[in-house]
Computed example of a mutant assay.
Amino acid sequence: MAKTCQITGKKAMTGNNVSHSKRRTKRVFDVNLFTRKFYWVEQDCWISLKVSAAGLRTINKIGLNAAIKKAAEKGYLYV
């Protein structure tokens, strides 16, 4: 699961570099990923997750337990 957010499932996208002369070459748009440790109160342990900036906002909004449960249902995280 390299370069994939474990909460939102975001992956790297491909696109084109476009030069001034309009020549197109392939490039990769990587995800804004961070490796963060979170304290999971319900399990009383620390966990390490690879999360994107959007994943961090999701955890702040709905909470870590709900975010992990939603990610496990969608198949982004294997718990």
Rank of each mutant, 00 (worst) to 15 (best):
M1G: 12
A2R: 13
K3L: 08
T4H: 04
C5L: 04
Q6A: 05
Q6Y: 01
T8H: 00
K10L: 10
K10W: 02
K10T: 07
A12E: 15
A12W: 03
M13I: 05
T14K: 15
G15W: 11
S19W: 01
S19G: 14
K22N: 14
R24D: 03
R24P: 02
T25N: 12
R27H: 09
R27F: 07
R27I: 07
R27V: 08
V28A: 04
V28Q: 12
V28C: 01
V28H: 05
D30K: 13
L33E: 08
L33H: 06
F34M: 11
K37W: 01
F38Y: 15
F38D: 07
Y39S: 05
W40Y: 10
D44Y: 06
D44V: 10
C45S: 11
I47Q: 05
S48M: 09
S48C: 08
L49F: 10
L49Q: 09
L49H: 07
V51S: 01
V51I: 14
V51F: 02
A53R: 12
A53G: 14
A54F: 02
G55E: 06
L56I: 15
T58M: 13
T58I: 11
T58K: 15
T58C: 13
K61T: 13
I62R: 11
G63F: 08
L64P: 05
L64Q: 09
L64I: 12
A66D: 13
A67S: 15
A67K: 00
A67W: 02
I68V: 15
I68Y: 00
I68K: 09
K70D: 14
K70Y: 06
K70C: 03
K70P: 03
A71V: 06
A71C: 10
K74F: 01
K74N: 09
G75I: 00
G75V: 03
Y78D: 07
V79A: 09
V79Y: 08
V79I: 15
